[in-house]
Amino acid sequence: MADQLTEEQIAEFKEAFSLFDKDGDGTITTKELGTVMRSLGQNPTEAELQDMINEVDADGNGTIDFPEFLTMMARKMKDTDSEEEIREAFRVFDKDGNGYISAAELRHVMTNLGEKLTDEEVDEMIREADIDGDGQVNYEEFVQMMTAK
Rank of each mutant, 00 (worst) to 15 (best):
A2Y: 05
D3H: 06
L5G: 06
L5E: 07
L5F: 00
E8A: 05
E8V: 11
E8H: 08
E8T: 08
Q9E: 08
Q9P: 05
I10M: 07
I10V: 10
A11M: 04
E12Q: 12
E12V: 07
F13G: 15
F13I: 13
K14L: 00
E15L: 14
E15M: 02
A16E: 02
F17Q: 15
F17G: 02
F17H: 08
F17T: 01
L19C: 05
F20D: 06
K22G: 03
D23S: 00
G24S: 10
D25V: 09
G26A: 13
G26H: 03
I28F: 13
I28G: 01
T29G: 00
T29S: 06
T30R: 15
T30F: 07
K31L: 08
K31T: 10
E32Q: 02
E32H: 15
L33Q: 00
G34V: 05
G34Q: 04
T35R: 09
M37A: 15
R38V: 13
R38G: 12
S39Y: 15
S39C: 09
L40G: 03
G41P: 06
G41A: 12
G41F: 15
Q42P: 08
Q42D: 01
N43Y: 12
N43F: 15
P44I: 05
P44R: 07
P44S: 11
T45V: 06
A47K: 08
E48I: 08
E48K: 07
E48L: 08
L49D: 04
L49G: 13
Q50R: 14
D51H: 02
D51P: 04
D51W: 02
M52P: 11
M52S: 06
I53W: 05
I53M: 15
N54T: 04
E55I: 05
V56L: 11
V56F: 03
V56A: 11
D57F: 06
D57A: 07
D57S: 05
A58P: 15
D59H: 15
D59V: 09
D59S: 08
D59F: 12
G60V: 04
G60A: 01
N61V: 14
N61R: 03
N61D: 11
G62T: 01
T63D: 04
T63A: 10
T63G: 11
T63L: 06
I64N: 10
I64A: 08
I64W: 06
I64Y: 13
F66K: 07
F66E: 01
P67Q: 10
P67V: 10
P67F: 12
E68I: 03
E68F: 01
E68N: 10
E68K: 12
F69L: 11
F69E: 06
F69H: 04
L70T: 01
T71P: 13
M72E: 02
M72K: 06
M73N: 14
M73L: 09
M73S: 01
A74T: 11
A74E: 02
K76H: 09
M77A: 15
M77R: 12
M77T: 11
K78L: 01
K78M: 00
D79T: 02
D79K: 08
T80I: 14
T80C: 05
S82F: 03
E83T: 01
E83I: 01
E83S: 00
E84N: 11
E85L: 05
E85T: 11
E85P: 00
I86G: 14
I86P: 10
I86A: 08
I86Y: 06
R87K: 07
R87S: 07
R87A: 15
R87I: 02
R87L: 08
R87D: 00
R87Y: 12
F90N: 15
F90M: 05
R91K: 05
R91L: 10
V92S: 05
F93T: 14
D94V: 06
K95E: 10
K95F: 05
G97C: 09
N98L: 07
N98T: 06
Y100V: 04
Y100L: 07
S102V: 02
S102H: 09
A103R: 13
A103P: 07
A103L: 00
A104T: 09
A104R: 09
A104I: 01
E105V: 13
E105R: 05
L106D: 15
L106W: 13
R107L: 13
H108G: 01
H108N: 13
H108A: 11
H108R: 12
V109R: 10
V109F: 13
V109Q: 05
M110G: 05
M110A: 12
T111Y: 02
L113W: 02
G114T: 04
G114Y: 04
E115Y: 15
E115P: 14
E115C: 06
L117Q: 07
T118C: 00
D119V: 08
E120T: 02
E120C: 11
E121F: 04
E121S: 00
V122K: 08
V122R: 04
V122N: 00
V122L: 08
D123C: 04
D123G: 12
D123Q: 02
E124P: 01
E124M: 03
M125W: 01
I126V: 12
I126N: 08
I126E: 03
I126R: 04
R127C: 01
R127F: 05
E128P: 04
A129D: 00
D130H: 07
D130R: 03
D130F: 01
D130C: 08
I131W: 14
I131P: 01
D132T: 03
G133I: 01
D134G: 11
G135Q: 03
Q136C: 02
V137E: 02
N138T: 07
N138H: 10
E140D: 09
E140L: 02
E141Y: 02
E141F: 01
E141Q: 03
V143H: 04
V143M: 14
V143E: 14
V143G: 07
V143D: 04
M146S: 04
M146P: 13
T147C: 06
A148V: 12
A148I: 06
